[in-house]
Computed example of a mutant assay.
Amino acid sequence: MTDRQEPKAQVDAAHFFAADIRVGLVLSVDSFPEARKPAYKLRVDFGPLVGELATSAQVANYPAGELAGRLVVGVVNLGKKRIAGFTSECLLLGSYDTEGVVQLLSPAPESSPGDVVG
């Protein structure tokens, strides 16, 4: 996937606004050798109303130490998904660069875990 991907079909705005997108703080980063593609297991704090959620993210292009303590943007209401025996509870958002590598979206530095993105 690259930035040259064709636009997707139009959707009703209600579909977008149904997604609960929030700022999170990466608390921990663990290796995930069972995943088919290089990935980490992350624990992310989405603030007091959502709490901590686990996710698997194909962001092995980032050193683990660079991810821990980083603010990220994630969707927290997509339900749970099993990935190689691991339960992922949220989806971190990023863009694909021209090489197809994920570049995580970053909120403003003054954002706090749990802030709503909209």
Rank of each mutant, 00 (worst) to 15 (best):
P109A: 05
I83Y: 09
K37Q: 10
E52Q: 14
P109Y: 01
Q103C: 12
V29G: 09
R36S: 10
L91A: 12
K80V: 00
V59H: 10
T87I: 07
P33M: 01
K81N: 14
D20I: 09
P63Y: 01
F86T: 05
A35G: 00
G94I: 07
E89C: 03
Q58F: 02
K80L: 00
E110D: 11
P107F: 06
G24T: 09
S95V: 15
E99Q: 11
R22M: 10
L104T: 12
D30L: 13
E34P: 01
E99P: 00
A13E: 10
N61M: 06
V23H: 04
S88T: 02
L71N: 09
A68K: 15
L91T: 14
A84L: 03
L104S: 12
A60T: 14
V116M: 10
C90P: 12
G47W: 10
L92E: 08
A64M: 13
D30G: 07
D12Q: 09
G114M: 05
S28W: 08
A64C: 11
R70T: 01
V101H: 03
E6G: 08
M1Y: 12
P63I: 01
A9Y: 01
N61C: 07
Y62Q: 05
P63T: 03
A13V: 13
V72K: 08
Q58E: 07
E66R: 14
T98P: 06
L53W: 13
F46A: 02
D20Y: 07
P48Q: 07
G118I: 09
P63D: 03
V76Q: 01
K8A: 15
Q58M: 05
E6L: 15
R70W: 01
E89A: 04
V73T: 11
V29Y: 06
P38E: 02
V50Y: 08
